[in-house]
Design a protein around this nucleic acid. Structure first.
Lengths: 247, 247
DNA sequence: TATATTCTTTGACCCAGATCAACTGAGGTT
DNA sequence: AACCTCAGTTGATCTGGGTCAAAGAATATA
């Protein structure tokens, strides 16, 4: 058997998102049933996974990579309304049409379940329904936090908020603890950042430059970011510095 | 027994939100259990129902009136992140602290359940868990729709969006069908509208005057609104006019 | 009848961020 | 080596909505 660099087949017990995805609470026998109805699909960066309004034949979890949910107005204005990271769930049980465009921001691997069988299984499996409720409540919290960012924060605060979210997510992978300098690659283009933040890409670029000039962040190339002082960044984001994961 | 003008006691079978709230799917025997752990509380307009960060001893449903969820930054900037209408659920099972301030916008009657017993009951009662998931998914959709409003719409479009949401909600109560003129009272002050829309109250006032001048809405007093042409309003909101409930 | 008080409107001015436009720099292709 | 293209930067200018200030309208208090 060939070595796997990506999860495009294999069984659930080796799955990198086993403990965080919608299946997190499942017992071994429940996983066996899921194995029956699951399949993997890969998407290249930039590819559309689902078009808004289309009928969805599947639901599933992001296994690796990053996808985004976006809404678009007729005149072309677009707003990103969700950032899907590994273990996040795509699709809505009990509804046929997709409400948003889902796009692969990086290369993405998804673990898909045919919708009907998954819905039927959810009826019989409280472990799945319960986990999905928990994840949905978390997403709702995240969406509401983002409403504050969109509605009330300045451009500089918006950028700092986004950077601190991405940094927090990568914190667990970072070699140093959260108190040391944090280093990561931005998975988003300036345009995607703008769509997330309700800004233009020019403003994003300018504020990135300003944060760099002020020493809040360091940049190598366009995407590689170092944050020398996380507390400083969170301060710039306008968040209560004690509210986060820092002691 | 005194006539009831408000639902502050009584049993579930007479409840005005019986078919829409978290208990909507419950069987009579399940309702009997809920009756055991429920109690009614009333709040006056302006009163705070729950402070962000406080430990919550209960969860519950709005029976009548309107409440709002708000987030506030240290410097006082506030953003409304949810509008709670009758049948909407308050509180998060499985979490102790409240994430947002909950405030009564009008006089509010709530049907409360002590948190612990409710959580235990949820474990045993898929009808409740399932309905709560459904409601949470709906709220998530609403939050994401609002992200587009906050991030990308102009002040005029924001006002039109809010008016069309309130109008839609009242549509069922309206004597005329949705195609006739719609009439309703705004349940929000200009300041609350501003907090919802990420605007200042002056801008809200100016845009309301502008929509009035342009004949999109008619105003009697500050709060009584008539919408002569719903399609026109939705056009002003920047929404796809065919996407809504109009044929 | 005066007088707070709270909500709202309106005016004058200003600025953060949008818009329009030019340019840089890193790949990639021929 | 010339020349694409695509992502990003930077500059000049404009404007929608914020800020500051005053006044109107409606209801409550004395």
């Amino acid at each position: 058997m060939a070595a796997q660099t990506q999860m495009t087949s294999g069984n659930c017990s080796d799955c990198p998102i086993r403990h965080r995805a919608v299946c997190a609470r499942c017992e071994p026998d429940e996983l066996d049933v899921l194995e029956e109805i699951k399949y993997y699909r890969t998407f290249e960066a930039g590819q559309t996974i689902i078009w808004s309004g289309d009928k969805m034949g599947f639901v599933g979890s992001v296994v690796s990579g990053i996808a985004s949910l976006t809404q678009t107005m007729e005149d072309g204005r677009t707003q990103m309304v969700g950032l899907l990271l590994p273990s996040d769930f795509v699709g809505r049980p009990g509804r046929d049409g997709a409400a948003y465009d889902v796009t692969a921001t990086t290369d993405v691997v998804m673990c898909c379940f045919r919708k009907k069988p998954f819905e039927e299984m959810m009826e019989r499996t409280p472990h799945i329904a319960h986990r999905l409720l928990e994840m949905t409540l978390d997403e709702l919290d995240a969406a509401r936090e983002w409403m504050l960012v969109l509605g009330r924060k300045t451009a500089r605060e918006k950028i700092a908020s986004l950077l601190s979210i991405v940094a927090r997510r990568d914190a667990s992978l970072s070699p140093n603890g959260p108190s040391g300098p944090m280093v990561f690659d931005l998975p988003l283009t300036r345009e995607a950042m703008a769509d997330y933040l309700g800004l233009t890409l020019e403003t994003v670029s300018r504020q990135m430059s300003a944060l760099k000039k002020d020493g809040v962040i360091q940049l190598e190339g366009k995407r590689h970011v170092t944050i020398p002082d996380m507390r400083r960044l969170m301060d710039e984001a306008g968040d209560d510095a004690d509210g986060g994961f820092l002691g």
